[in-house]
Write a protein that binds this DNA or RNA. Structure first.
Length: 487
DNA sequence: TTTTGAGTTGTTCGA
DNA sequence: GTCGAACAACTCAAA
């Protein structure tokens, strides 16, 4: 039975179009068995968090539906990758296993083990690059070393990257004579037992179709104003493609293609402004993955080793206030609540909230990274790591240590009318614009009219920014001294 | 080879 | 009120 089929192991590539593994399977002209294995234990500390699991559930449902409409199915299994695959091999005897690579330290190890196992069974496993514009390891500076500064990385990417022709999955995907058993999606228990996902559900449409709808709408309506608009969290000028990209529901090639096409840009003479700004963002994702590939320890520890001895504080109460959006700084709290409710936070606010945790509260960036991992639908190890190390100043191309965001100034600059704050911090909804980003300075009479009782309906600031800033600079001074001593 | 200048995302201070 | 300087150290490529 099924002696000549091709097993396509879906993981972080939950799409049919522009999927190199599926493409190769179709080209082999054999029946295709699409498979997904859920094994969170083996993914270790970085197995998907609750918000990501919710997203994954919807995405598997969508992928399953897309496969069905093409006469195929998605086989779902649960358990260790090795055992599940072994079990399946005796069942369907595929002639080859195809998948798309996940360039993350843990996954590369898993792939090694699987490869060894399959080699013993004389079944070739072939993996493809389906998630990155350029293969990690291929973009190096003149010394043959990985880039640690973004701009030279970007220039090199522009020079070497050729947009690939898109590939569309066929109407019918050849099915095996007999399908192996599959678990129902519910058996993976990806959705929360208590339904807290209402806000997320209302915000997102996971799946390949959702990704393309999102991309088209973004290109049509937002790309032109993107360079400025992307910084204002009350506006919807960002692409919101991050969760789709993380789960491979759309490929970066497809995005590049659509955006660059619009700029009539082939190969790479002048991009239009919006296009260039946006593709640079896509390249930041690329940069993050390449860095994690070259420096796999950075998901846990700082790239700049002198930061290992940074005098971080231990303060569970402050951490909890930050997580719940009760720091007393409206823009920070708005961001943290948007995150909790929708599984996503605007990028500008991620920087402000991140800076606040690390510099104002002096709590380790890893705590922030873990919380984001837990709550983001777009949680991505490479992007999360780069972002947090950037904001903490301990990574590649890091923010200078003296760049400490002032949450009031940032709020006034990027949410000038307080629309974003009012949306997510309703207890401040009636505060006049003049005080919305620093209610503690407002006269009692104003507070009273806005029905704000500081310390009761909305917290006093948990730290005073000016003092906290000086404390952070002092902490960073100790790192600086360490650099000088070890030189 | 050495030097030079620029580098995603900022703030504060003092003239 | 506005503006420039200062706030490190290091990476990378162009000159």
């Amino acid at each position: 039975m099924n002696k000549d089929c091709t097993l396509v192991w879906f993981r972080r590539d939950l799409r049919l179009d522009d999927n190199p593994a599926l493409r190769a399977a179709i080209a082999a002209k054999t029946p295709v068995v699409p498979l997904f294995i859920w094994s969170p234990e083996e993914e270790g500390a970085w197995s998907p968090g609750p918000a990501s699991r919710w997203w994954l559930h919807q995405s598997l449902e969508a992928l399953s539906g897309d496969l069905k409409s093409r006469g195929s199915r998605l086989i779902l299994r649960k358990g260790s990758f090795l055992q599940t695959l072994t079990g399946l091999l005796s069942d369907i005897h595929p002639v080859r296993v195809l998948c798309n690579r996940i360039v993350e330290p843990g996954w590369l190890e898993i792939e090694e083990q699987i490869s060894t196992l399959l080699r013993a069974e004389k079944i070739p496993i072939v993996s493809f690059n389906g998630s990155l514009l350029a293969e990690p390891g291929t973009l190096l500076n003149r010394q043959g070393r990985p880039f640690q500064v973004f701009t030279p990385f970007w220039k090199t990417l522009l020079r070497v990257y050729l947009p690939e022709e898109g590939w569309t999955a066929p109407r019918v995907i050849p099915a095996p004579k007999q399908w192996p058993d599959s678990l129902p999606l519910e058996a993976l228990a990806l959705e929360p037992k208590i339904d807290w996902a209402g806000g997320i559900r209302a915000t997102w449409t996971p799946g390949e179709k959702g990704a393309h709808t999102q991309l088209s709408a973004f290109i049509k309506k937002r790309l032109e104003t993107y360079p400025e608009g992307r910084d204002f969290p009350a506006q919807s000028d960002t692409s919101r493609l991050s969760p789709y990209l993380h789960f491979g529901e759309i490929s970066p090639h497809a995005i590049w293609h659509c955006v660059a096409d619009r700029a009539a840009f082939h190969p790479h003479p002048g991009l239009m402004r919006g296009e260039e700004t946006f593709l640079r963002q896509l390249a930041w994702r690329e940069f993050a993955h390449h860095l994690l590939f070259h420096f796999p320890h950075t998901a846990e520890s700082p790239l700049r080793p002198e930061f290992s001895s940074f005098p971080w504080r231990h303060d569970p109460t402050a951490l909890e206030a930050w997580q719940k959006g009760l720091t007393g700084y409206p823009i920070v709290d708005a961001g943290m609540r948007e995150l909790w409710r929708t599984g996503w936070m605007h990028n500008r606010v991620r920087m402000i909230a991140g800076s606040f945790l690390v510099k104002d509260l002096l709590l380790p960036w890893q705590k922030g990274a873990q919380w984001f991992w837990h709550t983001l639908v777009d949680a991505d190890l490479a992007n999360n790591t780069l972002g947090w190390q950037w904001v903490a100043g301990c990574g590649a191309d890091a923010a200078p240590y003296f760049r400490i965001f002032n949450p009031v100034v940032q709020g006034q600059k990027f949410d000038p009318e307080g629309v974003y704050v009012r949306r997510w911090v309703p207890e401040l909804a009636q505060m006049p614009v003049a005080w919305i980003h620093h209610p503690w300075d407002a006269p009692l009479e104003i507070l009273g009219r806005a029905k704000v009782k500081l310390g009761i309906s909305y917290p006093w600031p948990i730290v005073e920014h000016g003092t906290a800033r000086i404390r952070a600079l002092a902490g960073l001074d100790s790192v600086k001294r360490l650099i000088i001593e070890t030189r």
